[in-house]
Simulated scan of single mutants.
Amino acid sequence: MSQGCHEHVRIAIVTESFLPTLNGVTTSVCRVLDCLAAQGGHEVLVVCPGPAPSNYLGFAVKTVPSVTVRAFRVGLPTKQLEQILLQFAPDVVHAASPFGLGARALAAARNLAIPSVAIYQTDMPSYVAQHGGVLGDFAHRTSWRWVRHLHSLADLTLAPSSAATAELAEHGVPRVALWGRGVDTSQFDATLKADPQVAVLRRRLAPNGEVIVGYVGRLAPEKELHRLEEIADLPGISIAIVGEGPDRDDLERLLPNAHFLGRQEGATLARSYASFDVFVHTGTKETFGQTLQEAMASGLPVVAPAAGGPLDIVKPGVTGLLFDPSAPGALRRSVGSLVADEAMRERMGASAVRKVADRSWAGMTDKLLDYYGHVTRPAWARAA
């Protein structure tokens, strides 16, 4: 069904993260809201941890009490949520990356007989295992039990990649379908490579004409950035890292010659992508890999682990290279081959632009509205 052909819908989006916090969940929610606003006619209420803006593009934002855990604002799953949903009376509840607040929303939706869609975005069991210390394995198993329980409350779970879909099915999560993520090709654009500000940044990052190998994302254990040590002494490269997080100090010690550019957004972020020659991603537990799409739209060949979300995004030998994360030196060999071959970089970068050209957020939001339509039809029956 094409954009604009959907009936107007009342949607309650309950999200574990929203502005001013910037991460993948916030970005996805905001892009969906952008597209819903552009279509017009839809009524949307956003429920999120406070503090947050009171509205977004004219859509009301309702905050719930929150606490800070490891620098994240975490919404408290109180009974207030059921009252909010009862008062708004949505056609569908959209739970964005549910874990605590979203789980409460899905339970409330079931109690109130409101159809619901859960968006699986964060591999929380792996995140918990990595932060769980000696209790890591136990925490991982417990987290999967929780994920299975909360997603069983939803009428439909949407996973962003075939790897994530298979993993959810393997852990007994019912009613799973595939819903990818869009990329803003008007913001992330290979033509920015000719921007004078990009030229200035390139001279700063690579004063001697080095090949710039860049990373964008959170600087945290689950991103496995320690793997970059493999390429730190590759001759003729300059490593540039965009992002902030709890691992920054450790990474600065591990990679003393890397350029740490801090957290960026908007045009500044787009220019940073455009200044890179190669994009590298190191995490093996990504359910999707949005920065890979942004890098590809920026005309970059990408190097990523042959695991999880990147398997759907990167076409090896065409738009980039996938390395075996269990093989020592595999990342170094992949990056090194691109560093040594400018023609290959240019060929893959051009292919990458073509690959993501049709992955607009408008199209993804249209598909999401189709899924809303599935669960709100009277004939839809939630399987046991």
Rank of each mutant, 00 (worst) to 15 (best):
D249H: 06
A384L: 13
I212S: 00
S54A: 15
A232E: 14
S162L: 14
V335Y: 04
M364Y: 09
A307T: 11
R218I: 02
G209S: 08
S272Y: 10
V69R: 11
A71Q: 14
P174I: 01
P235L: 10
Y215G: 01
P77V: 10
Q187W: 02
I114M: 07
Q39D: 15
I237Y: 04
M296C: 09
Q87W: 06
Y273A: 11
H171G: 03
C5M: 14
D189F: 08
S275K: 04
Q187D: 03
I13E: 04
G209F: 03
G320Y: 08
F288L: 10
E43D: 13
S116P: 05
S326G: 05
W146M: 13
G58F: 12
S326Q: 14
K315Y: 01
H171A: 02
K285G: 09
L106N: 05
Q3L: 12
G243A: 05
Q264P: 00
T268I: 09
L322H: 09
H8R: 15
R354F: 00
V302A: 15
I241D: 02
S54K: 14
A109K: 06
T68K: 13
I237R: 02
Q39G: 08
A118R: 02
R382V: 12
G172L: 12
G217S: 08
F59S: 12
A169K: 15
G172E: 13
F99Y: 15
S143N: 08
G373N: 05
Q197P: 00
H281T: 08
T191I: 00
L76V: 14
S238Q: 05
M344L: 15
F288H: 13
L331W: 01
E210Y: 05
G172Q: 12
L251V: 03
Q197N: 12
A258D: 06
G182P: 02
T291W: 05
A109Q: 07
S298M: 06
R104C: 12
C30N: 09
C5A: 11
E167T: 11
N111W: 02
P328L: 00
G329L: 02
F323I: 04
R73C: 10
A52T: 07
A350G: 07
Y120W: 11
T287V: 05
R73Y: 03
E82G: 13
V356G: 02
A71G: 06
